[in-house]
Design a protein around this nucleic acid. Structure first.
Length: 800
DNA sequence: ATACCTCGAGTTCG
DNA sequence: CTCGAGGTAT
């Protein structure tokens, strides 16, 4: 066998180099990609060492594609390989299963415990229990208390020597503390990137325009395999010890938990969550406890690990294949899963928004079976380039809502073609249109579109709107489909017979079953309940009613603003947009939307019919006196956005001409005399010359005067105790729902907002409060717990 | 004009 | 919960 000795000619060496590279490439490919090794490991190592020797002698020959230069998933290079003296085993996994009780759901854990109990003839054996950190397993070796090197787990038999990088991790002791360590000690544990460090890294990368890390785990793995330790040093990694490997000339305690204590004493970080537990019940309690605090831990974990605590017992249990019989990893349901896109369909929302939704092959993500995932809008589909037939990664974002994270490359069927938004609504066939610059495509069918009618009704009946009990999606579907209900007003004209007839039609279509025929009496019961629910909803509040109408841009908050300031439906439904503009939080768009809604004859008709049907508001009142300060001709003119006519000019103008009539009578020259700039005066002249625009202004003025006249003369303003305070609610409250707490706080004059900012006075944090609590702490906002909230309410005479 | 603050709208599954 | 966009303060 040749080697890179100096006597050899350059030419021979370069040929040898090429041959080595080819051989190693091929062998590496078969080994790592095909999983079908063609060359014994030892031979591979020998060839690689020869290649490296030649390259060291001739650095000018080193090319980026040389097998020696590989970094990453396919071929290990750059780092020497190390054989673990004691193999780093893998653990058997236990996952949650379908089942009626704990023993069935966690059968794998139950079996694990039972096997130990029978084999060792012990009851309620003691376990050392610990969180299973989601990072990179490594082994550290210490000789006479000094760190001499470390390696990744690799395949368990052989890992990569990443000593240089491990030295940069501050939590890995380079020298052991205390006394009594064995001459040779191998400590095993997990290298992780703490969430805090991960977020910091990504925040910085985002600013610098660098690539972001996908998750902390990738951050740890990628950083540890950097060839340049200086790079690793810049990524903050942490280490937590969880086991001992090789030991020579020394002794350890007789249990695993005591060993961990010993490791702590020697200077190793050990997760504070490690504990001991007895028997199946004990393990399960630990699993649940960790599951609850999982989000608050500084690192990502993907489960917990149970280890039989005493080493004698471990030895007696032995191994199956490559996993110990004395330990098991109890995994949380996976948060990310891969699945296939069966179809991409369009959903039409209440406002006509067309949302693409991926229909997925059912897959369990984070404990629930996911079959749908939103794709948000056409841009998002294009960005991800999701196609029907693709394999995709699905994740439950923010704990609840499934989303498609990315497409798995290389698994796309050949006939897959890019997805595009259809040109027409799949429900009613109207054109789908997109406004300039907007992200959403909308069905142009309006209430002609059954999908929009349906969604509008569901919204109308929803809890925060009219709160009609018994009217869920199912019934709305049928009511709309068989044309019993076209508008919300139709709901109040339904009779028992209508509902029963509808039910019959629905059954016929679905294929009537003997059961439904027999169940005639039960069918009557639900119909009666629904009618009761509809009847009860007749008593409501003005804000709820306005919200229920589903006017664009009018959510529950703006609805409340309208109700509070204008007092009655009659005042609201007649106001031109220029008057509405003066209300807080109402600008051009919102005002135009409200006025536009009530200008449509169809909508007016629906509202009239609802009132005729007996809708009553418990809380109608007179317009708010504060309107006096906000509502004057200046406000109207400013709101009209007449070019060049700014607030200054308006003020000058109105000083001399207090009414629209007076302004008109004055005329151009007198406006100039009042100090109004020529450009503004011409613009005003042009507006008044246009009959349509003149009409708008005069209507607004008239409406304004009528409104002012409706304000009671001597209104005493009572000062509420929490007036001017802004609250935010988060987490789960025990005594009442957040909605109810909001109502009670508002009754005391407080504002209840949805998110925390500097302006927030108090954050009320219930159980399991999340990001809002962090933000409040960051901004130094007062934080109350539920008890304090209840005390505050009680103090002002409101009970829970 | 810009930066911040809010609100509205859409979303899944049990 | 998150995103986008409307409203307001600077």
């Amino acid at each position: 066998m040749t080697n890179a000795s100096s006597e050899q000619s350059s030419l021979e060496l370069s040929h040898r180099l090429a041959a080595l590279r080819q051989q190693l490439d091929e062998a590496g490919y078969r080994y790592y990609v095909l999983d079908d090794p063609s060359l014994p490991d030892a031979d591979y190592d020998r060839l690689m060492r020869e290649l490296e020797a030649i390259e060291r002698a001739h650095p000018e020959w080193v090319t980026a594609d040389s097998p020696s230069q590989r970094v990453g998933s396919k071929v290990v290079g750059g780092f020497p390989e190390v054989r673990h003296a004691v193999p780093m085993l893998s653990l058997n996994n236990a996952f949650e299963q379908e089942g009626a009780d704990d023993r069935a759901r966690y059968a794998e854990v139950a079996d694990f415990v039972r096997r130990i109990e029978t084999t060792l003839d012990r009851r309620q054996p003691e376990f050392s229990v610990e969180p299973k950190l989601d990072g990179l397993a490594i082994s550290l070796r210490y000789l006479d208390g000094l760190f001499i090197g470390g390696a990744t787990r690799g395949d368990g038999e052989t890992g990569e020597d990443v000593t240089g990088n491990l030295r940069t991790i501050r939590s890995i002791p380079l020298k052991l503390r205390g006394t009594g360590w064995p001459r040779l000690l191998e400590v095993r544990g997990e290298v992780v990137m703490l969430r805090r460090d991960f977020e910091q890294f990504n925040a910085r990368a985002l600013k610098a325009g660098d690539k972001l890390l996908a998750n902390p785990r990738n951050g740890a793995a990628g950083s540890l395999r950097q060839l340049d330790p200086a790079v690793t040093a810049h990524r903050k990694l942490s280490f937590f010890a969880y086991a001992v490997g090789q030991v020579e000339d020394g002794a350890l305690p007789s249990t695993h938990s005591a060993t961990l204590q010993q490791l702590r004493a020697w200077g190793f970080p050990v997760s504070p969550e490690v504990a001991t537990a007895r028997g199946f019940e004990g393990l399960l309690a630990y699993f649940r406890r960790i599951g609850e605090v999982r989000d608050q831990l500084p690192y990502d974990i993907d489960g917990v690990v149970y280890k039989l605590d005493d080493y004698v017992g471990q030895q007696a249990m032995g191994f199956v294949a490559r996993a110990p019989r004395w330990a098991i990893a109890h995994k949380f349901p996976a948060q990310e899963q891969s699945t296939r896109v069966q179809a991409i369909e369009i959903q039409i929302g209440r406002t006509g928004a067309a949302t693409p939704v991926a229909r997925l092959e059912p897959v369990s993500v984070g404990g629930v079976v996911v079959t749908n995932a939103t794709l948000h809008n056409a841009d998002q589909v294009a960005r991800l380039d999701v196609r029907v037939g693709d394999s995709v990664i699905v994740r439950r974002a923010g704990d609840v809502i499934p989303e498609v994270v990315r497409v798995i490359p290389g698994q796309r069927p050949e006939d897959a073609h890019p997805w595009s938004m259809p040109s027409h609504c799949p429900v009613c066939g109207s054109a789908l249109l997109r406004e300039d610059g907007a992200a959403a495509w909308r069905c142009s069918g309006g209430l002609f579109c059954p999908a929009q009618r349906k969604e509008a009704l569901i919204h109308f009946a929803s809890r925060r709107a009219m709160d009609i009990e018994g009217l869920g999606e199912r019934f709305v579907d049928a009511l709309v489909e068989f044309d019993y209900v076209k508008t919300p007003a139709d709901l109040y004209r339904l009779s028992l017979d209508d509902l029963l007839a509808m039910k019959q039609q629905a059954d016929m279509r679905d294929g009537s079953t003997p059961e439904t025929v027999k169940a005639g009496k039960i069918a009557t019961r639900w119909a009666e309940k629904l009618l009761e629910g509809i009847d009860a909803s007749r008593q409501t509040s003005l804000a709820r009613f306005l919200f229920a109408l589903g006017i664009m841009h009018i959510g529950s908050n703006t609805a409340k603003t309208l109700a509070d300031w204008l007092g009655s439906l009659e005042q609201i439904r007649l106001q031109p947009d220029l008057v509405l503009r003066v209300l807080p939080d109402v600008g051009t768009e919102v005002a135009a939307s409200i006025a536009g809604f009530f200008q449509q004859a169809g909508n007016q008709d629906v509202v009239d019919r609802l009132l005729e049907a007996g809708i009553e508001f418990a809380d109608e009142s007179t317009p708010d006196p504060r309107l006096r300060q906000r509502l004057d001709l200046a406000a109207l003119l400013n709101g009209a956005h007449i070019a060049k006519l700014g607030p200054k000019s308006v003020e000058l103008l109105l000083r001399h001409f207090p009414t629209l009539e007076a302004i008109e009578a004055g005329g151009y020259n007198h406006w100039l005399a009042a100090g109004v700039p020529a450009a503004a005066a011409s613009a005003l002249e042009a507006v008044l010359a246009d009959p349509a625009r003149r009409q708008v202004l005069s209507n607004a003025e008239q409406a304004m005067r009528a409104l002012l006249a409706a304000i009671p003369a001597a209104a005493q303003v009572e000062n509420l105790p929490l007036q001017g305070q802004s609250f935010v609610l988060t987490g789960t409250l025990q005594a009442m729902s957040r909605d109810l707490a909001k109502e009670k706080l508002e009754a005391l004059g407080a504002k209840v907002a949805g998110s925390v900012s500097r302006k927030t006075s108090v954050l009320v944090a219930g159980e399991a409060a999340g990001s809002k609590l962090d933000k409040a702490n960051e901004l130094g906002v007062d934080v109350w717990d539920e008890a304090k909230l209840l005390a505050c309410l009680a103090e002002h005479g409101i009970s829970a």
